[in-house]
Simulated scan of single mutants.
Amino acid sequence: MAPRVLLPDQRCEVWTASAATGARELVFSTGELLVEAPNWTHDGAALILNGAGSLWRLDLGTGSLGEVPVSGIPDLNNDHVLAPGGLIYLSASDGHIYRAALQGGPATRITADDGVFRFLHGVSPDGQELAYVGIEAGNSGNPGRIMTMPAGGGASAFVDVGRGHSDGPEYSPDGEWLYFNTEAFSGRAGRAQLARVRPGASGLERLIESGAVDWFPHLSPDGRFACYLRFPPGTKGHPADLPVEIIAVSTEDWTVPLHTWTLFGGQGTLNVNSWSPDSARFAYVAYPVECSAARPAR
């Protein structure tokens, strides 16, 4: 799959938002490059994104965007996570997971050639385990399954959460839970809902029941807040370029939104955890089209 590019008259905008106050800030805007899936660095100084098959660093102090020189890896897709010790784990277009230093350099593949396509979403707080979505035989028609594996490589374990596609597995800050979205509660496409489960596949809980399609729950590092992406009812998968909502909640009550932001986006907007290390803000990406009636609220 080729890296995404901007549509005619489309811009790529990187924003930060506060779950506590609802305040937002536009930190980067371009009509030249489509970037996706921000991670916030552990020192709070930058955002890490992918775009044009490469890895990029957005310095929040200067607003400058520069490519991270990672070598020995195919084009990146939209899934990457930061780990302790200055490491980054990356999903690539060949369906494998790679490990590299965050400042760049050669990447090391850590997954085997077994026909499974992997989309990485989570790293445990101690950096010892990864959580990803596995699609067997590389066939996008097969449902995604929640999997875990040692961060150093090795055998994967299947986390059974029921039938239907599941996506976005991410560890809670204490490492006790995996948060994700799943179609298991309805058994049909276009009905993703938010849930959590113990990494050992016990204690499955539905977090919220809505008439919409909810994806990618992300918890703040202090565990107090979460944000997630809401697609229109009936949306299958997490496509690009449509009106969506980002919803922030308190983890004490997922049913009551603290703030809701409407924008034009979807794929690439909020694929991976993008909370700041102090839990004050999270980052997301909007893709407004000048001639579209569905421009994000300003």
Rank of each mutant, 00 (worst) to 15 (best):
R24Y: 09
D113G: 05
D79T: 11
P169Q: 06
G22C: 08
A280H: 10
L76P: 04
E136C: 05
I135M: 11
V35N: 10
R99A: 03
S186W: 14
D167N: 15
A17K: 06
R145A: 10
A23K: 11
L26T: 13
G63E: 13
W40H: 05
E36P: 02
S18P: 08
L102E: 12
W177V: 01
H165P: 04
P221I: 12
P232S: 07
Q193D: 05
A226G: 03
S71P: 03
G203M: 01
R206V: 12
G86Q: 15
A189S: 15
E290M: 01
H121S: 04
G266A: 09
D79I: 09
A131G: 03
A280V: 06
L194P: 01
G211S: 05
R281H: 11
I88A: 02
H259L: 12
S279F: 01
P257Q: 04
W275G: 00
D174W: 01
G61S: 12
V133F: 04
A137P: 05
P69E: 10
M1G: 07
L49Y: 09
T16Y: 09
G86D: 15
I135V: 15
H121F: 12
P8L: 13
T182W: 04
M149Y: 00
F185M: 08
E32F: 05
T148G: 00
L229P: 02
